[in-house]
Nucleic acid binder design. Structure first.
Lengths: 219, 219
DNA sequence: TCGCTATGTAAGCAATCGCTGACTTGAAGA
DNA sequence: TCTTCAAGTCAGCGATTGCTTACATAGCGA
């Protein structure tokens, strides 16, 4: 009888363990291996949490030896930090700028939530919730969330000298919290009926919620 | 140099490690010890996650030997299951019945979110998000969330033969997801400004969000 | 073809995990 | 006072964790 009941489980989703972003990993390509490791690690961290995800499993997902993780990222925390940085970058480039209209911002936020549990977007959002316990990686995580908050607030009509700035910042962050909560219930918790709800069912109420927080809230 | 960077840390919050619900643990009281263990475990599980929380630390919080956990709860999973059951019970008895008005229900939900990070209410909500990987405990968790959803939907004007039942159920669950997301950001992630926001700042936007989801949504 | 360097592997160490069995202690009943 | 049993402790086990060291090999320039 084993004393460790949580099974590491098979590779996540349908992606073969040795597939990189574009082609089959042929080995002997350091940067491709690093990208594949970050990709696999982000899935494991986002779905299972920092502590439960093991470096051996992540390396196995990629089809590579465990020691490479320490060679390329120094430590497990270093790998988590790399995941956070990549997520931060991608969220920054993917999402609307200050020039966008509020409707487009809301539409984009809804899309992030709805496109779950497949795709990488929700996983990125989910990763923002996971704490590694490492001070450095967690500071990046916190800063990414706060930066995301400011961009959302700016897109919602934020002005630096507006006396209602604090209120708008708070409402933007409540929107993000809502998105994170829904993604969490849809992917990790797998709670019905929200886990199996389709885009047509989720879009309308989520749009209204974000509208109340970001549009009406600006007054 | 250690290879385990995550420090277990000191006992959480200001509660002395050997304090039970009412009096100082005098030992030789099995049921009191069990309650104290569940109490400490729920804090650790909710704040650090299932995997990161260790039975040794939980036992140390109570001031008791680790072996008692296995004696009373068979395994770590058994302890987690006990936490889930107690949380499920308390949520059931604490929250409004079907006879309550919608305003009261919303007010209660807002109170759950606002009273963070102190108090046990948010911790109970947070625990609902944590997966142990154990099938039994996770089934209890899922069922508790779905039961909570139905109660909230019923309080929002749910009728069994209403053609909009599915929509109301979904909106109730989105409300819960929102509450969980905000609690998560306030306690675990400690993201500003929502982490340090006061009751007066949170009550109004949250009430409006829940109102949109539960009141307007019923049509 | 030789040799050097980057890329990856194999094996194992120290620490920590959950858990177990044998032991000690306290208190109530006869 | 003596017996008895529940309540709690102690020491250590097997497994797993992150990580390190020593070694193997592919690819490229000379």
């Amino acid at each position: 009888m084993s004393n460790q009941t949580q099974a590491p489980g098979a590779p996540l989703r349908s992606t073969p363990p040795d597939a990189d972003d574009e082609m089959i990993r042929s080995g002997r390509d350091a940067s491709a291996t690093q990208r594949a490791l970050v990709r696999a690690a982000r899935r494991r961290f986002a779905t299972e949490g920092y502590r439960a995800a093991t470096v051996r499993q992540i390396a196995a997902d990629v089809g590579v030896n465990v020691a490479l993780i320490n060679r390329y990222f120094v430590s497990k925390e270093g790998l988590f930090e790399a995941c956070m940085l990549r997520t931060s970058d991608e969220l920054d480039t993917q999402n609307p700028t200050r020039a966008s209209s509020l409707d487009e911002v809301i539409e984009r936020l809804v899309a992030h939530v709805v496109n779950a549990p497949d795709g990488d977007d929700p996983l990125q959002l989910l990763l923002l919730l996971r704490s590694s316990g490492d001070e450095n990686a967690d500071r990046i995580r916190r800063r990414t969330l706060e930066h995301f908050t400011q961009r959302l607030a700016a897109a919602a009509g934020w002005k630096a000298d507006d006396p209602a700035t604090a209120s708008i910042l708070l409402r933007a962050q409540l929107s993000i919290a809502t998105a994170l909560g829904v993604v969490m219930l849809r992917t990790s918790a797998a709670v019905q009926p929200v886990a199996s709800a389709g885009s047509d069912e989720l879009t309308e109420p989520l749009t209204r919620v974000f509208g109340v927080l970001l549009d009406d809230g600006a007054r």
